[in-house]
């Protein structure tokens, strides 16, 4: 995985596999959220970069790096919670 520095998780502003506004600036984030809030089955997944823990190290994960593979994206409420 590339070591792109990222302060906090953010959408890249593009859909997976598409170029576009890949440098979504923080001040544009609210607008980006509005524009991209429609996540639908049958449509491209919104791309994002986020800091991550992986195999004992800290890295950055980018959804579009998983193009070409089946990918499962799972959100959950929190670490050390019960379910």
């Amino acid at each position: 995985m590339p070591k792109e520095e990222v302060g906090c998780a953010r959408p890249t502003g593009a859909m997976v596999g598409e170029t576009g506004n890949t440098q979504a600036k923080k001040e544009n984030l609210v607008e980006e959220k509005k524009r991209m809030s429609e996540v639908r089955v049958g449509a491209k997944a919104p791309d994002f970069v986020a800091p991550a823990y992986y195999h004992g190290g800290f890295t950055t994960v980018k959804l579009s790096d998983f193009l070409g593979k089946w990918t499962l994206l799972c959100f959950y409420p929190g670490d050390f919670t019960f379910v």
């Binding site: 996540v39 997944a45 193009l67 994206l73």
Partner: peptide, 21 residues
Amino acid sequence: NAGVEMRGRFIIDPDGIIQAM
């Protein structure tokens, strides 16, 4: 309001298309 994510699960195919959620 709660500041947490719901349990969202997305199956994304090799072309980047969401097939199921």
